[in-house]
Design a binder for these strands. Structure first.
Length: 564
RNA sequence: AACCUGGUGGUGUAAUUGGUAACACAACUGGUUUUGGUCCAGUCAUUUCAGGUUCAAGUCCUGGCCGGGUUGCCA
């Protein structure tokens, strides 16, 4: 972690004050994922906050799995979450915990509440409970079981634990206030029966505590000072405090809420991301189009870029939507610094040099990073038959088109100046080959007469090219706010993945795993794990800015308007 | 309609706690360039509205307007 973070958001302000007033000598936070899915960018915001403030203030951050619902949680999610947090750059040291570590204590505390007359075993059906809860305008109605003797509830609760009852037959409720304007306080359920084995406790339990009954108490057990969560738990804070107040817990943690992250063209709902995976809309949780940390990792994001992004968007209590271009910009910025430059032709078109000596191959020297000569150079073969991008040749070119067109001279980067002399088409009118002549005096990409050649394009020698499958990704959704006008699935971008057969310069054949490169004039890429002995596969992490595309669009618009 | 909460450019954050509204992204202009990349320069808000306090208000007070959350045996 090299980014310095001198933010002064409300969380850091509170912590500073608590430290200054002596309320706390040191701070302890926690990141509490439920292992029912994979972590995504939204979680990255929370992770950077939880671990970030702990580090900044010399405190500690625990990783605690909120595993209170065995019907949704699985061990492989636990493993993936740990890997993702580590990859993002954070370390919980010895402090790995699970809410399930506290099941026995939680059970004891539930009994305590019953004994104190603050909880009771409910026997109404879920439906009746819902009916009697009232609504936002009307108070609820007390349960007929609300005032049963503590002894009776205690006995029933013990038999719930012993497995005497079916799922849903009975439930333990806190006795608070059925008329509270805060629905969360209308005698909330705190223990339910679930005959299901748990990833960690196996079949030891058939009753499980609800989130509300587990979270604050877990915080207290671990000595958490600042329990940071998202705004949807704001209404739960009074309940969080109620348990802490009425139970003999060892500490008094406080909950603070911040707004979750919304990103344009992105879905940050674990439930909906799971749906995409389950329905096969994407390949997997780590599909490079997914906003999951594993997907972003596979896509080629650097942890540093994600951390920088999280620091930039800050922490607030107001809901907002961050423009995805901010993330992309920070990513490019990070990659621009470190990525070595390479040449790769994504949509190949053959160029034949008519005056090139038959069979001749020449090595040319190319810089690994134009801005950083210290990163060295490499040699690339240049020959009489080359691949260039189809988009770098136009039979009829618009104004300001600096690339190859009949009669125009163009620089082949690090190679020679070539002038287009002609081209061939097939029966469908598609260009099949471009013919050029080269200037032998222009080796390396310049001439002694210093004449101006505006256009520079990249290329790969046909005889030496490495074939590769390259996956070009676009936003997973085509709408800025997926689902804003109905079903979010309708907003999926049908063109979020384009696969092309590309031609790569030779050294890309055995690029070290995990290395990130820039394909010049195109974007940043990394090798995908699908690569094998006979196939090299690359993922496009993010495209370069393309001001020509913008210009051309504008020119086209002007032309269209002029035609009217 | 009840309760809780919030409101600074197109977007996300700042503003020495009452003292020149700053930074980044996006957009638009230019310049440099062997990547139409990078880099550099410039343009783009009288802080939701109306009052009030004050020499001075984004910041304090009153009222309005608008937004988000809440009626799982999910977290």
């Amino acid at each position: 972690m090299t980014e310095k973070e001198s933010a002064t958001d409300f969380v850091r302000t509170i912590i500073t004050e608590d430290l200054a007033s002596g309320k706390h000598k040191s701070i302890v936070t926690r990141f509490p994922p439920e292992p029912n899915g994979y972590l995504h960018v939204g979680h990255a915001k929370a992770i950077c906050l939880d671990f970030g403030v702990a580090a900044e203030f010399g405190g500690r951050c625990n990783l605690r799995f909120d595993d209170t619902n065995p019907s949704k949680e699985e061990q492989h999610y636990i493993d993936a979450i740990k890997e993702d947090v580590r990859w993002l750059g954070f370390d919980w040291g010895e402090h790995l915990y699970h809410a399930s570590d506290y099941f026995e204590q939680l059970y004891e505390w539930a009994c305590h509440l019953i004994r104190e007359g603050l909880a009771y075993v409910e026997e109404q059906t879920a439906e009746d409970m819902r009916k009697n809860r009232g609504d936002l305008q009307n108070p609820g109605v007390n349960s007929p079981y609300r005032d049963r003797p503590a002894e009776e509830s205690l006995d029933l609760f013990a038999r719930m634990r012993a497995g005497e009852f079916e799922d849903g037959a009975k439930i333990l409720r806190a006795k608070i206030d059925m008329a509270s304007p805060n629905m969360v306080l209308r005698d909330p359920a705190i223990y339910r029966i679930q005959h299901r084995s748990h990833p960690r406790t196996g079949d030891a339990w058939c009753i499980y505590p609800m989130y509300d009954f587990a979270h604050g108490q877990s915080d207290a057990i671990e000595g958490i000072t600042h329990s940071l969560c998202t705004m949807e738990f704001e209404n739960h804070r009074p309940l969080y405090d109620w348990f802490v107040e009425h139970l003999p817990v060892p500490a008094v943690p406080r909950q603070y809420e911040f707004a979750r992250l919304n990103l344009t063209y992105t879905m940050t709902s674990k439930r909906k991301l799971k749906m995409l995976v389950d329905e096969g809309r994407v390949e997997s949780w780590d599909d490079p189009r997914m906003p999951t940390l594993s997907g972003m990792r596979r896509r080629g994001f650097t942890p540093a870029a994600i951390r920088k992004f999280c620091a930039t968007i800050g922490i607030k209590r107001t809901e907002g939507t961050v423009d995805i271009s901010l993330l992309e910009s920070i990513l490019r910025d990070d990659l621009n610094d470190v990525a070595h430059r390479r040449m790769a032709v994504l949509r190949p078109l053959k160029v034949v040099i008519e005056n090139w000596p038959e069979g001749h191959v020449e090595m040319v020297e190319a810089m690994n990073h134009p801005g950083k000569p210290e990163l060295g150079t490499r040699e690339i073969p240049f020959s009489g038959e080359l691949w260039i991008e189809r988009d770098d040749f136009r039979e009829e070119a618009p104004r300001k088109y600096f690339r190859l067109k009949p009669g125009q001279e163009v620089r082949f980067r690090y190679g020679y100046y070539l002038t287009c002399t002609g081209f061939d088409k097939d029966d469908n009118g598609e260009i099949t080959e471009v013919r050029c002549t080269y200037d032998p005096e222009s080796k390396g990409g310049n001439t002694e007469d210093g004449r101006k050649v505006k256009g520079t394009i990249h290329w790969v020698s046909a005889a030496h090219a490495v074939d590769s499958e390259v996956r070009l990704y676009d936003h997973l959704f085509r709408e800025p706010i997926p689902g804003a006008n109905g079903d979010f699935l309708d907003d999926l971008n049908p063109d979020s993945l384009e696969v092309v057969n590309a031609k790569l310069e030779p050294c890309l054949a055995d690029i070290p795993a995990g290395e990130l490169v820039q394909f010049e004039r195109s974007g940043y890429f990394c090798q995908d794990r699908d690569s094998n002995a006979d196939k090299v596969v690359f993922n496009r992490t993010v495209a370069l800015r393309d001001s020509w595309a913008k210009l051309e669009k504008k020119l086209n618009q002007q032309a269209a308007e002029g035609a009217k």
